[in-house]
Nucleic acid binder design. Structure first.
Lengths: 362, 362
DNA sequence: TTTGAACCTACAAACGGTTGCATTTTCCTC
DNA sequence: GAGGAAAATGCAACCGTTTGTAGGTTCAAA
């Protein structure tokens, strides 16, 4: 590969002059010299070596991206991370930055932190890190530009971008309550993710505010997967008093709920209302189409990338979490609760009973 | 940030010795010296600079990944590329390689090629490049390790990994034919992608071999998207003689077909059989579940990454395309053609007529 | 005590750029 | 033609490593 010296020799000038021309440097260069150099570059197929430039300029033009590695060493590219990634790539690409996946699994600050000091990236973007990890506090000590996406919402000591899940969950639960549902179940997301924690907390709060009890049997754990959603929903729908509505922590869990409902011949939405969070394409593939909380992932990813690039360029950025508002997308998966009980339950009294009965169960 | 010299000074040794210790170098080092150095490294939080190492060793431990940028400057992370990416990341991660997205749009060999000479990556993985682009031939001239995923299948002059779409399509069409379908429509994928081209070609061949004509009205273009599938399917289903089966070039197109069918009250599979390609999760979200060709993307991505890493490590790799076999996953979206015509059509004769009529149309 | 082998360690030259400063050239002006 | 400012270019140090070679220890055997 041709180096800057090859070009310089070819033109009979020094490497400094070539560098100056290549970078449209501060010093004026005689037009004929410039032309000669540009031609030599073309002829020799010269392109500056990124690593040498990185060394000299102390700037890599690369950002590192880390996808929250929840209790596994595997990076997971799901619909969520793909959406964020896409948005980040578009912003980074426009500004001439590369995006590198950090593939090394996080094994705790002591062991993993030093690898981030290797000067490979100008900054890091951490997406949905586990809340019980020491990752973010540790990374902050490096004093390298850092932006978190969807970290614990009440953590304010880092530059972060997130969706106002708290508000979104309120909207969803209010929707179900206003339809008349009282026996509402929740299938939670991964316990180590901030989003799941918020959704569960706000769910409970809203129910409490509405004076509707939430028996333990109606809150089941899952890991943001269809399979887990299926298992949980099956359990819920086979309860002596099944819920009339299920709040699934994300679309994929909802897909599992649909599966279980179909298997148990529970009709959505007449027998069971379903709401979820994310509004990934799959919510439209499901039949009936899923009522879900639209999460503006593209905005989140773009803004996160912008905040990171600003920091890298030396622009001061406010040290707080920036929130985007989600929106409820009403589709076809919710309805008023069916007063006729499903065959699996007592055929008298129906949900009316369920509600009354439900209250003291708490 | 601490450098190797800081460590060396701290211990009163030379940088060479530190380097030797850090890399478990070839030269023996006295145990107490080693211990002293390791402690200093710990104390100073030293980590070797990746760029300096890259310069000195002429090895970046990074692979570049390019997602086929079809007629747009935007990188698209869809279900397909996400699956490949995930597989690549897992292999690369295990072997200590980083993965960088090449964000610069490809503007032709003349303009874009030199950027790949910047020494940032040890090799490149190109996923589903457009068939009408000069990208691959140009990249090959660089003599940098290169692996293509899903390039034009009949191109044999590069190391490539692909799925035997030809065989897969045969299986799908045979399935439809053996069910008794004769009026089979095809909604094609993006015209600039090899996968789409193969699927259409083999579709036509198989139909020809079976002696079943394929009128032009039954082959409609789409761009591997739900929306395009919806538009095309609507057109097909409103034909005077609608098809009894649709071969969608991928799952997302099939999702559009489902949408159109639901809107037009066409029942799947009794009125219309649908088959597609990919077997992404969405094929199970659809109702009825989609019969589709399972594409082993994880194997493809992993193998592609392995071939690339082998080349980088200097192992000779055969200069050909390696194929993986797809498998038909029979689910619920196909059935024998319904002899009773849909209301939109003549109620006498039904598909029998359609077949007979269809023949001379060719 | 010398000697040679076996070990360690340091020096310095890359790797391919950038950049402040010094130097040369060019072009005016008097 | 001399003088000087401005413009153009060159020199050399530096970015943080690796690595070949040379030099310095240590130690046992002679």
């Amino acid at each position: 590969m041709a180096t800057i010296y090859d070009v310089a020799k070819e033109c009979g000038v020094s490497s400094a002059t070539v560098s100056n021309v290549v970078n449209n440097g501060p010093k004026p260069v005689r037009p004929e010299t410039r032309k000669k150099i540009l031609e030599a570059i073309e002829r020799l197929n010269y392109h500056p070596n990124a690593f040498a430039q990185g060394l000299a300029k102390q700037k890599t033009h690369t950002i590192g991206i880390l996808f929250g590695v929840v209790d596994s060493a595997e990076i997971v590219i799901n619909a969520y991370s793909a959406a964020i990634l896409q948005a980040v790539l578009s912003v980074a690409g426009c500004q001439g930055y590369n995006v590198t996946h950090i593939t090394a699994p996080w094994k705790g600050a002591k062991e993993s932190l030093s690898a981030f000091r290797n000067g490979r990236c100008d900054g890091y973007l951490v997406v949905a890190p586990p809340t019980d990890s020491d990752m973010i506090p540790a990374l902050r000590t490096l004093e390298i530009p850092l932006v978190t996406v969807s970290w614990l919402p009440d953590q304010r000591d880092a530059v972060g971008v997130d969706i106002d899940d708290s508000h979104g969950t309120e909207l969803l639960i209010d929707h179900l309550l206003s339809l008349g549902h009282r026996r509402i179940a929740h299938i939670t997301g991964h316990p180590n993710l901030g989003s799941a924690q918020v959704r569960e907390r706000v769910f409970r709060t809203q129910m409490l505010l509405a004076g509707v009890p939430v028996p333990n049997e109606l809150v089941l754990p899952a890991h943001y997967s269809q399979h887990d959603g299926y298992i949980a929903a099956k359990q819920l729908l086979q309860l002596p008093e099944p819920p009339t509505a299920i709040f699934a922590a994300n679309d994929e869990i909802a897909a599992g709920v649909y599966e279980a409902a179909r298997e148990l011949k529970v009709n959505i939405p007449t027998d069971l209302s379903v709401v979820a969070v994310d509004d990934r394409p799959l919510s439209q593939y499901l039949s009936p189409k899923l009522t879900t909380l639209h999460q503006p992932f593209d905005q989140v990813g773009q803004y996160a990338a912008q905040l990171l690039l600003q920091q890298i360029e030396g622009i001061e950025v406010e040290n707080k979490t920036h929130y985007f508002k989600p929106e409820v997308v009403l589709r076809e998966s919710t309805a008023t609760p069916n007063p006729i009980l499903r065959p699996t339950s007592d055929s008298n009294g129906g949900n009316q009973n369920a509600i009354k009965h439900g209250s003291p169960t708490q």
